[in-house]
Design a protein around this nucleic acid. Structure first.
Lengths: 148, 148
DNA sequence: TATTGTTATACTCTATAACTATA
DNA sequence: TATAGTTATAGAGTATAACAATA
């Protein structure tokens, strides 16, 4: 029985509301489990983006993080001072530079992820098999929703 | 077959990682759908807490929002200036005051939720019946995880 | 004397505008 | 002349310390 496409819009609206609240609430809890309070959210986010996308110029990184270039200049400077990223010359354009996480930067990101995963994994142990199965399927669907 | 409780811990760690990433990513998208850019995140969050928990004193509200009392003084002052909340005298202690959202404040919160729900509901229409069923069950599980 | 809330002041983060170096 | 990045400066938002009013 595939009634979902025929259901009144109200049903999806209620699901949207429930889902939004539970997702936002869990996200707040996960956010609170940050590793290193010495690095700000913006600094960690910029470093994580470099780790995901590979080397970027400051301008590209600013665009990705939706901040203005001067703001990224400061974020990059602080990460560089902490030796969490490295700058290398752009191969063809001497105005530009390429940024990448250093070994220490990668280690910090890995530790950050590890701690958050550990917090969540610990709570997953309180769930039964059926609930875990639901989450396994839901993770993929949530990912698609976010990317849409 | 209920193998989940017997599975090696690594399996839950992988699920934790996948789930964390998808939840955080969706939360970012939902956050970006804010209604009213004239009110900051902190202001909106404080107002929403008053709406959920009923009248609170400034001190209680500061504790809920994890900010210091002087910071809450400023947030409350701005909400009051915008006529989004009201202050009433505490019934027994003249040092304290009770804060509650005004009618306009409730309307603003409702509009904010409506817009976010609409964004998500629109995307839910792209899913099939099985995926919607998974999300219906997952919403409850996620809620429990967040509250744990 | 302790507690609630506010005022005074400083720090962090981000923005816009102006500047330097390179294309 | 246009573009990449930085420096100078200003505006939010939050914190700590000091203060006023009430318990």
């Amino acid at each position: 029985m595939t009634y979902a496409n025929d259901m009144p819009l109200a049903a999806d609206t209620a699901l949207a509301s429930d889902l939004r609240m539970s997702v936002m609430r869990l996200a707040r809890r996960l956010r609170a489990e940050r590793t290193d309070s010495s690095m700000s959210i913006s600094q960690l986010a910029a470093l994580a983006t470099l780790d995901r996308h590979g080397p970027l110029t400051p301008g590209e990184l600013a665009a990705h993080e939706r901040v203005q270039p001067p703001s990224m200049t400061r974020i990059v400077a602080s990460l560089e001072a902490a030796e969490l990223l490295t700058r290398t010359d752009h191969p063809t354009d001497r105005r530009q530079v390429l940024l990448a996480p250093s070994r220490a930067g990668k280690d910090l990101l890995r530790e950050d992820r590890r701690r958050r995963d550990a917090w969540l994994a610990k709570r997953l142990r309180d769930l039964d098999a059926a609930e875990l199965a639901v989450l396994r399927e839901a993770a993929a669907v949530l990912e698609r929703l976010a990317g849409a």
